[in-house]
Design a protein around this nucleic acid. Sequence first.
DNA 1: GCCAACGTTGGC
DNA 2: GCCAACGTTGGC
Length: 156
Amino acid sequence: MNYWLMKSEPTEFSIDDLAARPDRREPWDGVRNYQARNFMRDAMRVGDLAFFYHSNCEPPGIVGIVRIASEARPDPTAFDPRDKHYDPKSDPDDPRWWLVEVEFVEKFGRPVTLAALKSRPELADMQLVKRGNRLSVMPVEPRHWDIIRKMAYEGA
DNA sequence: GCCAACGTTGGC
DNA sequence: GCCAACGTTGGC
């Protein structure tokens, strides 16, 4: 079982949007970064858990937990010329971009903000808090996962 | 293969 | 809105 962190801008797709889906599931489409794609396509397994991170908002931070609910499959938005994430270089016979489905698990009572994460010396080696990090899908070390969950439940 | 130009991410 | 950091593109 692996742990992950997945970013989304809440104005695009928020954890409340996910919770409001009838089946509480959603394809995590639109990822257009090779490293992030590789994590989804090659390393994620059904049942893995991921932090849902709100980026580009006030405040940025982890707002809850989702479960990986499907194996990876080609991202159909790459093939749709009307889609904002259309990529003419993604060939349906050899797809360039992939997605997994995520399923709502829980929303924290209050977010664990990026500022709070940065204030913890034990989290200093997390990929997320490192300077210049732009990766939208990344692994989370189990020890970091445990610390952050405690922060969420303590309201820290 | 190098690298400058460009576009995007995302915190602040 | 600004801009640093980073990834991608394309000329050479």
